[in-house]
Design a binder for these strands. Sequence first.
DNA 1: GTCTATAGTTCGATAGAC
DNA 2: GTCTATCGAACTATAGAC
Lengths: 211, 211
Amino acid sequence: MNHCFTAIVPYRATPAIRARSAAQRATIVAAAIAVLTDHGYAGCSVAAVAARAGVATGTVYKHFISKAALVAEVFEQVVSREVGAVAAAAAVPGPLADRVVAVLETFARRALKVPKLAYALLAEPVDPHIEAQRLAFRRTFQGLIAGPIADGVAAGVLPPQNPHLTAAALVGAAGELLVGPLSVDDPPVDTVPALIEFTLRALGGHDAAHA
Amino acid sequence: MNHCFTAIVPYRATPAIRARSAAQRATIVAAAIAVLTDHGYAGCSVAAVAARAGVATGTVYKHFISKAALVAEVFEQVVSREVGAVAAAAAVPGPLADRVVAVLETFARRALKVPKLAYALLAEPVDPHIEAQRLAFRRTFQGLIAGPIADGVAAGVLPPQNPHLTAAALVGAAGELLVGPLSVDDPPVDTVPALIEFTLRALGGHDAAHA
DNA sequence: GTCTATAGTTCGATAGAC
DNA sequence: GTCTATCGAACTATAGAC
């Protein structure tokens, strides 16, 4: 009788083990978000993330093939969260121009609360692969505000314009406008009002919104 | 007497050699710009640049320590050229709002003429070091249009606004608005008019400009 | 998970300049 | 004659496909 048989029975993770592994993975991602929030991408070393998660550095690589893979998942989660928050703001009833403003205001206010994180997501130099995620992120945001703009144009409360182009311009404007304030320790208080004014003027709906 | 002295006289490049080397370096940079213009950053391999310059790949590394160093110089040259062109557009006399429009229109028209190159400079995922150059590039552009905006506000032809924030928003808007059109083969013809309309509305100077 | 393809980098040989 | 610039093939690492 050969007991190799038992030896070669492949390792099968029990549900408990699998759950533990998933929990550890989630802990690591959460730790990475925390580090990113506190110290930005520059301070987001694998060692720092591991320490924050209470695991060894090598453990991170049991769950992610590389730092880039970890960061990619972090970006995805954070972006999903932000998109959700912003989409909720877009769903409130009210004048169409105000919905667009609500989206951008929500986006900006949330960004200014976690400046390091927002800067990492918006502008901080990162690896090309993550850079590609940014492009997708922006496109998603554009989609969220192109709808209300198109409705506003159709309803005649906004002047004729290509909704997708205006949406792209507004997303770019919001991002770039935030980059400066996000880089300093004390973001100036007039950033959000400035963005709102800019948006209302750019939509051409300042008067229309009051109609 | 020891004739080692003559032997250890170090090699000193003659002016002719130095000029030749500088010319070759310039040739390589020009070739890199050409490749970037034709095929974007994705097609900008060292081998492709060397072939275009008519030199061997190894020769590139005699002038640049790495591909990143080459690309950094390429970016710097191209950006200088664009900044110069745009600064000239900003210098023409006329209503202040129109100067801002002229800057953005010049920027956009030039970009649309060399879409691959412009996309590489504006949005294509590149290495972090080059990414940092982009941030500086944008800040330079902001400076170019913040002046006329401030003048316009001071003169009362533009509504009250923080010129630097509006400038940042407009730069971001122009960049983001161009990303889409630059990615497709045939950029839509309405991109530049849309940018101009957007800019005039955002400045709040549509009426003021006609005054 | 392995394999292939591609791209950045390096290095020894050669040819030509001083 | 010595020394160096140039070449281009080889190496290595990484990314994407099966």
